[in-house]
Simulated assay, not measured.
Amino acid sequence: MVKQRVEGDFIKINEWLRPLSWLYGVVVRIRNWCFDVGILKSKSFAIPVISVGNITVGGSGKTPHVEYLIRLLQDRVRVAVLSRGYKRKSHGYVLAQENTSMPKIGDEPFQMHSKFPNVYVAVCKKRCEGIMRLQEDEETKDVQVILLDDAFQHRYVKPGVNILLVDYHRLIIYDELLPAGRLREPLSGKNRADIVIVTKCPKDLKPMEFRVLTKAMSLYPYQHLYFTTLEYDGVEAMYGEKEKYPLDFLRGKQILLLTGIASPEQIMVDLQSYSSSIIPMIFADHHNYKSCDIDAIKERLEQLGDSCIILTTEKDAARLRSIEELPQKLKDNLYILPIRVKFLLNQEQRFNNRIIQYIRKNQKISL
């Protein structure tokens, strides 16, 4: 049984690695200093650019927050998402097309491309090049807003709005630099953010906790702090008619929770109100499922019996769909749990207005 978590409770510091963290910190600080004084150049763009990222290793909810921005903007402006395309089997700049495969662009870009076919999705390790290609190539030159996925450390781009995500369960204020902790750069890196969002908060977070967290984050007056939680948009059959069911569909069922994401713990906590029998089958983040993994999943499902279903994330579903000849037994029992973010403290409209005002100010369009 997974118990309700509290802020910062997933952090583990490897004390014996602190000397290596000190050396790592020296290198990162020198790099940041080079950008701060102009030795290394950050490029600004005339087109509105919104970056979503973090300063930690592991998931902080980047994809659901980028998808939130897509939903907010896609009916107002022509949106493009630019990602690095982590673990993709291609090089250089790639624009997702109708028949583009998951391995060519990576699981998260593939997920967004599948869900939002009217949004441009491109991958490029060099973000400046990617932004220029999106603006200059004939097929994408009508783009009006670019969302950068996981680009907080990519300082060669100077975004118009820099959004930093901080996992409620891995608060950066309690963490340490790699490899002792999970920070990619010193805590001072948060000062570059225009907006800070504490993600994956419990839905019943108390007002006192908000005040304590706000003070602990110690942000500057120019920075804006928000809090979000996870919501689940029903349950979808992955194959067949791809029917959608309410979450009550899970009641009374055994759930084999299949995940290859960085932080599945909050999902397990949230599902406890629907099922008392949740069996986790956890793989590493961005795990590429192999035939031996599929055999192990099938064997586990057969052990658990007919009342069991397999529940997985959209990111895992993107990778599973790329597997040829998936056993029918798995197809018949595979369901997806789509995730959305919800703003707490009635902050949604304030956040939306801030994003829309930025775009209106920096683009000659009517929103």
Rank of each mutant, 00 (worst) to 15 (best):
A216N: 14
A216H: 09
S218I: 01
S218A: 14
S218Q: 09
L219E: 12
L219M: 13
P221K: 07
P221V: 12
Y222P: 09
Q223L: 06
Q223R: 07
Q223A: 08
F227G: 11
F227I: 11
T228Y: 07
T229H: 14
Y232R: 06
D233W: 01
E236G: 01
A237P: 01
A237S: 12
M238G: 10
M238V: 12
M238H: 01
Y239F: 13
Y239W: 05
K242W: 04
K242A: 05
K242V: 02
K242H: 10
K244M: 05
Y245W: 12
Y245A: 06
P246C: 07
L247T: 09
L247A: 12
L247E: 08
D248Q: 07
D248L: 03
D248W: 00
F249Y: 13
L250H: 04
L250V: 04
R251W: 02
G252T: 03
G252Q: 05
G252K: 02
K253G: 02
I255Q: 10
I255N: 03
L256Y: 07
L256K: 04
L257N: 08
L258A: 07
G260Q: 03
S263F: 14
P264R: 10
E265T: 06
Q266S: 11
M268S: 14
D270G: 04
D270T: 06
L271Y: 03
Q272R: 15
Y274A: 09
Y274L: 11
Y274Q: 06
S276K: 13
I278F: 10
P280V: 11
P280W: 09
I282T: 15
I282R: 14
I282V: 15
A284K: 13
D285M: 01
